[in-house]
Design a protein around this nucleic acid. Structure first.
Length: 278
DNA sequence: ATCGCAGCCTGTACGC
DNA sequence: TGCGTACAGGCTGCGA
């Protein structure tokens, strides 16, 4: 599942291709729901002929700036992948959106479950402004987190998954951050001490930074699993402490990692390290 | 204010 | 071996 580190890895891959200046020549798609609410023809018309002026990331969104003040916003959701390929490269049936650039390069959005969303808009702020702060930015300060935690009774797991609270975490990195901070997923936010809030903030920043350093997490060999723009796999799966490690020993205390369901999500904890008031 | 659930979708893992 | 079924999960929208 692409979360902040995976999207950052994709965006860095795109940035290495030096896309700014390239012109969009052709747009092909076969899955209208992936560009909804725009009709496919309107989506293509808005892209056609524009030049790419920049590539960036905000939370889990890929933000591709275009000439004329337009922006292509991409969200990979569960199984989305973005590949840069020569225009002659063979297609496969999971490539649902192809953006053809000049000089024979294509951006191909591959998405086995078709949950990903792509939008061309002249007002990206309408979407991006609803997001909470970037966890790796200065906005995510100890004072800010402490202040916000104090005023909500929500449980840590659903709170950290809420993109309007903090933007970019998903199921993997929330579980990893809670383990690193030695906090239980069911802990009420307003029950955290200042020291625990500080620990949580550092843990979040650490697991995200590590995820980026390792090029994101690719779990298993499935068709929809995370890939870099180059098609390679990420490397952070070797560093996971709890996620998908149920039944195996905690690397900190040796207790058996458990899988439970919290906020309708598979949740992985060390029952000994994270035993705080459930 | 906060939670729970359905829906979107299809590959995968499991049971028989 | 092959079939059927449950499950996985980011996000939205709805109802409790």
């Amino acid at each position: 599942m692409p979360e902040l580190p995976e999207v950052e890895t994709v965006v860095r891959g795109l940035q290495a291709l030096r896309l700014p200046g390239r012109r969009i020549q052709r747009v092909w798609l076969d899955c209208p729901s992936m560009v909804a609410p725009l009709a496919p023809a309107e989506f293509a018309r808005r892209l056609q002929g524009r030049r790419i002026t920049g590539v960036a990331r905000r939370a889990k969104y890929i933000v591709i700036s275009l000439s004329g003040g337009w922006t292509l916003l991409g969200h990979l959701r569960m199984t989305g992948q973005l590949a840069a390929l020569a225009s002659g490269a063979p297609r496969d049936r999971h490539q649902h959106l192809v953006i053809g650039l000049d000089r024979g390069l294509e951006l191909r959005c591959r998405d086995t479950r078709k949950f990903g969303r792509w939008l061309v808009t002249d007002d990206p702020g309408a979407i991006l402004s609803r997001l909470g702060p970037e966890p790796l930015s200065r906005d995510f300060s100890a004072a800010w987190l402490r202040g916000r935690l104090r005023h909500t009774a929500r449980r840590l797991k659903p709170l950290l998954l809420d993109q309007a609270f903090l933007a970019g975490l998903g199921n993997i990195y929330v579980d990893e951050a809670l383990w690193a901070a030695r906090l239980g997923p069911m802990r009420r936010a307003d029950s955290l001490t200042a020291a625990e809030a500080a620990r949580l903030r550092l843990a979040i920043r650490r697991v995200l930074s590590q995820g980026i350093r390792h090029g994101g997490t690719t779990l298993g060999e499935g068709l929809g699993n995370f890939k870099l723009v180059s098609g390679r796999q990420g490397g952070h799966q070797r560093w996971l402490q709890v996620f998908h490690r149920a039944g195996r020993p905690c690397r900190r205390c040796g207790a058996v990692i458990q899988r439970l369901v919290v906020a309708q999500r598979g949740t992985h904890i060390c029952p000994v390290c994270q035993n705080g008031n459930h």
